[in-house]
Nucleic acid binder design. Structure first.
Lengths: 237, 237
DNA sequence: TGCTTCCAGATTGCATACGATTTGACCAAA
DNA sequence: TTTGGTCAAATCGTATGCAATCTGGAAGCA
């Protein structure tokens, strides 16, 4: 395992260390530092973060709930290896939820937040112009953060949680099935959405969002993709 | 605590007992046998189900993730006491998701499933005509099950999980803020939705669903409601 | 060689032990 | 009566130990 970002526990999180571990693993997964299928053994995670198996286990359980990790009884936890079917469902869910989110965001967004979005887009652009895997990771992360910021502005905590899950799982899917790594048109589309937001044009923003999701999904190669996991293949009648 | 429905572990669930406990507690909560605010101590839950705190804790953690239980550090777990604000967000989420679910269900529903829905509606009607708290509980449960069946037919596992959470939390909200207990018009509206489904009229089914959700929410009294919990009141700036 | 059997190592599932934190009661003082 | 302080009981957070299960490879047999 290769989790460089060691956590200083006493620092940011005086309590609930399992939550911090969950966050660290989450970041590692959506950053692709942990590849799908990687085994996450309780003792290994525990010793990496200097905690007992108990708390490592709690973190893994949380990730399992989010769908980022799959656990098999008596075998352990593995980074999820979403099937094409799963991928389609993830994007179907997003197509359903995100237009509503931008519509809500239009009603509530404040000038200061628009400014924040602009800065976010600048960061996206910076990563886009850089080369190398680190920049790619940064780009994926930043792109996801755009959607999460929207959810945050929309002001519905429940939808925000759903989006947290959907965006994270999308990152996994893109890592697995992405043709070009990141759809390069993503940035300009984000930009267009923000423009519509600024003009308080909810209908347009929602429509743009649907197209945006379509484009992301269109950049995937969801045709059975040789692998399929072999184990999953047999479980699928 | 008053959980009559003792589980026979070795029976239905050879594995993962925490999952069974979660299910039992879930049912107790959405059936209102466990009132909002009730403390769910780890040791108590554990001894009730004849398991150690470890597995009881896991069950409570799952329920916390679903929003049915709130845990405070070093204090324990309590049945959620959703605020009016939370309630509004729950229904806003449902208004966003459920129309899409019925639309998807229209595309995939099979005759056998329609038959199943009819039986479900019959059961709803039976409870509706009975009197007494047990019938009320049955009615709430059956009414929620209708929505869950729809999600199941829609065939999107992720949305199904979201709906699981939303329906369960809705039950809690109705228990807390429901004016008439159950909106009596619910049954006929379910019936109308099913008719539209049968005629494969997706647009109409979706529209009916939105109205249905509106009606459920309209039956709630979400005006601050005296209580507010005192503790929550201070945490809310 | 190829196939089956069996055992050792590793890992999880679960229970329990111990320290830390909170709570509520009791008692004293104003 | 009310306020404030101290302490014991209860409960949670976490580590660890043991049994059950799975895996992989070595040995045995055809």
């Amino acid at each position: 395992m290769n989790i460089s970002e060691k956590i200083t526990f006493t620092d940011a999180s005086p309590d609930d260390r399992s939550l911090a571990i969950r966050e660290a693993l989450r970041n590692a997964i959506i950053d692709r530092r942990l590849a799908p299928g990687t085994k996450l053994s309780e003792s290994e995670v525990g010793s990496l973060f200097d905690v007992s198996r108990t708390v490592a286990r709690a973190a893994l359980q949380m990730l399992t709930f989010e769908g980022l990790v799959k656990t098999e009884r008596n075998r352990g936890a593995f980074v999820s290896n979403p099937s094409p079917e799963e991928a389609k469902q993830i994007f179907a869910s997003r197509r359903l939820i995100e237009p509503g989110i931008v519509a809500a965001a239009v009603e509530r967004i404040m000038p200061a937040e628009i400014e924040q979005f602009r800065r976010q887009l600048d960061e996206e652009a910076r990563y886009m112009n850089e080369r190398g895997p680190a920049a790619r990771r940064g780009e994926i992360k930043a792109s996801g953060d755009f959607h999460l910021m929207l959810a945050s502005v929309a002001g519905n905590v429940i939808l925000q949680k759903f989006m947290d899950e959907l965006v994270a799982r999308s990152s996994l899917v893109i890592a697995l099935y992405g043709r070009s790594g990141v759809s390069s048109c993503g940035h300009s589309e984000h930009s267009a959405i923000l423009d519509a937001l600024e003009k308080a044009d909810g209908a347009r923003a929602a429509a743009l969002m649907v197209h945006h999701i379509d484009h992301i999904e269109a950049d995937l190669d969801l045709q059975l993709k040789q692998g399929l996991g072999l184990r999953d293949a047999l479980e699928m009648p």
